[in-house]
Structures are given as C-alpha cells and as structure tokens.
Design a protein around this nucleic acid. Structure first.
Lengths: 350, 350
DNA sequence: TTTTTTTACGAAAACGTTTGCGGCAGGGGG
DNA sequence: CCCCCTGCCGCAAACGTTTTCGTAAAAAAA
C-alpha cells in the first residue's frame, strides 16, 4: 500500500515552472511575481498540496518533533502534564512523541537513545525512580540535544526545569495533619534518588520539627520503584503499621503510592481517617469520590507541561547557545477532604 | 543549537570508501567483502553510528511511525490502550504519535489531516463523540493511508477493527442490576452516533426485555459530548432523577460518565447502592476505592491496543492490497463491587 | 544608444540514504 | 590466448525540499 501525495515537482510540471520557482512561490518569496505566486498558490490549494515534512526535516536538519519520557502515562499527573505539553507543541507546530520508562532505568536509557536517534529536536523528561545516574542524558546534552526537565529533575545538567514547590506542599500537608491532631505521622515515599522525594521529605520533616516533633526514621519508608510494584508499597505499609508506636497518620508522596495505600488500608481494614489519617500527593480527578475522599496535594500539572514545553522550544529555536537557565517553581494546592478530617464524619451516605 | 551526528559520508571518508559501499556494508550486502564489511561495522560501532531515520524515511517513502487519535489521554481506558499500542509499536520499531480529539469533531478532522501530512504510515483511531460523518477518514483511506479502528468504530470504511463485546457487557451489567432486585434501571450514555453507544444500548434493552421489562425511553439519556462537559452529565442525571417513577438504578456507559455520575450522586446526596444502584463502564484502577466501590464493566484495554496495532502494522507492511478484513470482539469482565450490592452494606468503615 | 539596475525565473547543490548498473580486476574454462 | 564469469566496489540517480547563485529580459539611468 502506498500513500501518494502531490509534490512540488508535480506543480512545477503542471505549471511549466521550475521546482525552485514553485518552492519560492509557496513560501511567498519576494523574487517571484505576484502573478506566478497566485497561480502556484491556487494550484496548490486546489490539489491540496502539503509539503512533505520529512523532506523538510532532512533539508533543515530539524524534525519539528519533541520527545517526551515519563514513567507512566496512565497516571493523572503525567497525563495532565502531557496535555499541557501537547497543547503548546501543537500550537507551535511540533509533534510530540511520548514514551514511558515505567520507572525503569534501563527503559529510560533505551528511550532517550531511541528518541535522539529518531532525531527529535529536543527532549522533555521526568526521571524514573530507578535512575541514579544521568550519564545517558549528559551525553546527549553535550552532543547538543536540548533537554528540559519537569517534576523529577537533576542538577547535573545545566538547563531549564519546572517543578512544583514540593517542599512547601509537603510542609502544608504535614502541618494540616498536625492541626487535625495527628501526632505520629509516617511518610511513605518514592525512591530516595528522586529530587521530589528529597524535597517532600524535607517539607515533612520541617513541619514536624516546627511542631516540636523529632522526625523518626522508622516512620519514613522509601519505595525504590515508586509504587510501580504494589508489593513494595504493601510491605512499606505493613512495616510501618507494625511499629510499636503505630502511626496515626500517613503522608504519601506520590500519585500511585497514595491510591495503593488507600486501597490497602481499606482491605486490612483500617478506618480512615479515624484510625489513621491520610494525605497524599495526587492529581487524580477522582480523589473526591474515593472512600474516603482523599485529602491531597495537587500540582498544577497542565501548567507545568505548558511551561516546560515553552522552555524547550525556546532552547530549540534559540540562535545562540543559551547560558542562562531558569528553574520555575510552581505552587501546589492542598485539597482538604475526608481522609484527614479527624472530627469529620462528613462522609456522605451509607 | 545543533545536534550533529555521524553520517555514512563520514565513515566513507575515514575508511576511504564510497558512500554506496558503506551503505551496502552496513546492510550486510553480499556484494561487499567480509573484510570491508567488518571494517565498516567496527568503525560504525566505535563511533556510534545511527542511520538518520529521516533520510531513510524520505528514501523509502515510509516514516516508520503511526498516528493515534483518541478522545482523551487522561482516561484509564485510553491510556491503557495506548500502553498496548506502544508496546507492540516499539517492539516492531515504529514510533507512536498520540493526539487527542477531546470528543470534538473539528479536532478529530484537524488531527487526522495533520497526522497524514506528517506522513505517518498508518492511523489508529477511536472516533470522537461528536463525529457523525467520517468523510475525512474515507478520503485519507482512499488515498491509501492504512487506518484501523478500536472501540468507537464505523462500518463506512472497510478495514480491521477491534472492539469489546459491548452488547454482552451491557447485557450482563443490566442483568446483574436486575438480579440485585433493581427494577427501574436508567441508562446514561454517550452520543447516539457512537457504535459503542448503540451496542451497549441494545444489551441494556435486551436484558430488560428478557426480564419482562419494557425499556422506557425516558430512562435513557444521551450525552452528546460523552461526558467531556460535566454540565451535560449533570443535566441528564437531574432529568432522570426527576422522573415521576424515579429510577432505582443507573447503568452508565462510559468511563467519564461513570465517575461524574458517582460524584454527582454523592453531592446530592443520594445513597448508593441503597437509594440507587450504579454500574458503570470503566477501566479506572481506582474503581475499587471509590465510595462506594464501583461495580463496573471493564474492557481488556491493553490487549485491545496490542491487537489493533498488530492489525495496522500488518496492513502497512502487506505487499498486496488487503481485502479480507477482520473485526475482533473481545470479552469484557463484570467486576461486582459495592455500588450495586443491594443487601450489601459491606462498605468498609464510617 | 549604452550602461546599470531591477525583476523574475531556472540550474544545481545540498540534506543522508538506498540501489541499479557499470567497471575493473582476477580466475577459470575453452 | 581469449572470453566470460564472479567478486568487489564506485558512480549516479533518486526521494522532496530549500537555498545560493547565475542569468536572461525588462526597466531605469546614463
């Protein structure tokens, strides 16, 4: 099967012009007479001429496409970010190629190399939970491939990045739990090698200290695979619940971790928020119909995608090497719902 | 900023060979001596040569990429399908370009044209709720672009397609509600122009008839925008609840419709499943932590994506025109949870 | 009129590949 | 000794564009 399209050559032949003339006419060059231009344009429109983007890419050395690597697409946070990326990219006529690392370092490396060899003009990436080493990205970056980061970032590559104010978000989440009267607040989080993990951990610790509570390392559980493996989350939860001083609240640091934890708590069963209060990081639009509805730190995911894409395109289209890099920090929002309402009971129904 | 890669020319120059020799050596041609081949391969590996896919595309007339149009990426059903698409595509070395119609006919048309002009080798599409006319796709298909459908399909284009057994899924869902003792079962569904809507509607009606109940058109509400506009769902729900014979159960026909409905019912509030039973179509992995946990028809989304991609690639790579088309129908699974358990009360906690 | 400038277009190279074909060796058969 | 075949390689065209440069003819200036 072949998909045949009309080319500049066809137009040239039909109008008895040269290819170069047609090309120039199509691009509105001043060195072509109005009459010829009109003829060409009319013929092109009539026959629905579309320039072959592959030929253009080859010629220009740019593909007008950008690669995206996220850990998972079926996660509201990332799909919302992608919505943002797509909207800006489309508007500036870039294609978006999406790949998933699934929190695997190996897949992240493979994807980044594959994308660069597919000649994307730039890369938007949020690191995988397994990633401890960004040499694969450094190498591409040094070869001249523009790269920008969002959410899970690294300082090892000098470039633009966008993150949420994870420190503040975590601080507010923890403080909220404290204000509700919870005291033994455990923290279930992602891999310790992730920037977001450290920032959220700091916010959590600071809030505890500000309330006169010394953070207890036994209350802090890392999940190396960021929740991709349910068993891991299950084990972390089991361990923390088995502690002599069983926590009376949990602060979970990522989307999947939060939903998995809630699910596990229900199965045990542990009453939320009575026995244990819960606050998560999540952008799930369904958080309010969870049982109980989930108090959560929500990130401006769409905006994050838009900003990071703007940054990348700026890098791509910049004439001269960019040396000033910005790190945008976006505000989060704490949505207070039932899972952390101690005196609550406002839970509708049954 | 430029991203410079090594080319065949560079290898040729370094090894004092011609480009054609290098090219043939790289592809293992028999007309090149073993020695030369080894030299070239060694040099290529050493300098990390990667063929420029854009040049290859131009030469071969194929881009090794496939376009996908879904209504929404932040919807577990579609993101799971995309997971399936991506896994097969990657394995066969195709790129995937994802676009969203957001249930808009206009965006669907624009996206399909944009993708074809970006010279994808084929198209995977699930129609938007607004789409009543598929001329834009017929046109592309007639020009030779391979197209396959999943989920929301059309008979107007002779090609492969994959769907779930919507009729049976809806039948079982409705029968389940009947078995639970519900009698006045309303149906909130998508646009009537969608294949899935009609099939699910038929299953719903048949189940009612088999139970000796005549379907009541007032109990059937269509949402033209497929739930993209919350107000629309809200109005449908309000109308159906205001009926003199208020329904005692709801069967919602799509992912977003189901979550929105559950959310609205909780706000009113209406007790689920006591006052009103609810069964939805959804692939949300969080359905079991909804309040109440949501009984749902779940589709084999991942498998659907894999199969449809296999079909497309088969079409793309087929030497001779394909004339035999298949329509795969996949089984759904009814996950029974609390939202439809009449004598239930097994709802954890509070 | 001659010279210069302007206008309008064409020729050709280039982007990185692939591929049909032609050619030059050397070896074997006649 | 000649011819042909085979093995190995290079030339050149092609994919569809863009862009530089050259060059006619027409218009303006001399």
């Amino acid at each position: 099967m072949k998909f045949e399209a009309i080319t500049i050559k066809d137009i040239a032949r039909a109008l008895k012009l040269s290819v170069s003339t047609v090309s120039k006419a199509l691009r509105g060059s001043h060195e072509i007479s109005e009459e010829t231009k009109n003829n060409v344009l009319a013929y092109a429109r009539e026959h629905n001429y579309k320039p072959n983007p592959i030929a253009q890419s080859l010629k220009r050395g740019r593909s007008k496409s950008i690669g995206v690597i996220v850990c998972n697409i079926d996660n509201n946070f990332f799909s919302q970010v992608i919505n943002g990326i797509e909207s800006v990219a489309r508007q500036k006529d870039y294609n978006v190629i999406i790949t998933q690392s699934r929190e695997s370092y190996e897949r992240e490396v493979a994807n980044s190399e594959h994308l660069s060899s597919r000649s994307v003009d730039g890369l938007i990436i949020s690191l995988s939970a397994e990633t401890r080493n960004v040499d694969h990205l450094v190498k591409l970056h040094e070869k001249g491939l523009p790269i920008v980061f969002f959410d899970r970032v690294t300082d090892e590559i000098p470039t633009h990045m966008v993150i949420a104010d994870n420190y503040k978000g975590a601080y507010e989440a923890t403080r909220h739990l404290l204000q509700q009267g919870y005291r033994r607040i455990a923290h279930i989080t992602s891999s310790g090698s992730l920037s977001i993990t450290l920032e959220r951990l700091e916010g959590y610790k600071r809030a505890l200290k500000d309330a006169g509570i010394e953070p207890d390392p036994r209350y802090i559980k890392f999940c190396q695979h960021g929740g991709m493996i349910p068993e891991e989350t299950c084990q972390a939860l089991t361990e923390v619940l088995a502690l002599p001083d069983r926590p009376d609240a949990l602060f979970t640091a990522s989307d999947r971790l939060s939903t998995t934890t809630l699910s596990l708590l229900r199965k045990l069963p542990v009453a939320v928020p009575q026995e244990i209060g819960l606050v998560g990081f999540t952008n799930s639009i369904s958080a309010e119909i969870f049982n109980p509805s989930l108090t959560s730190v929500v990130q401006p995911a769409l905006e994050m995608g838009q900003i990071v894409t703007d940054m990348l395109i700026q890098l791509i289209e910049s004439k001269r090497p960019v040396t000033q890099f910005q790190k945008r920090v976006l505000e989060t929002e704490l949505k207070i719902r039932d899972s952390s309402r101690r005196e609550g009971g406002a839970d509708g129904g049954n």
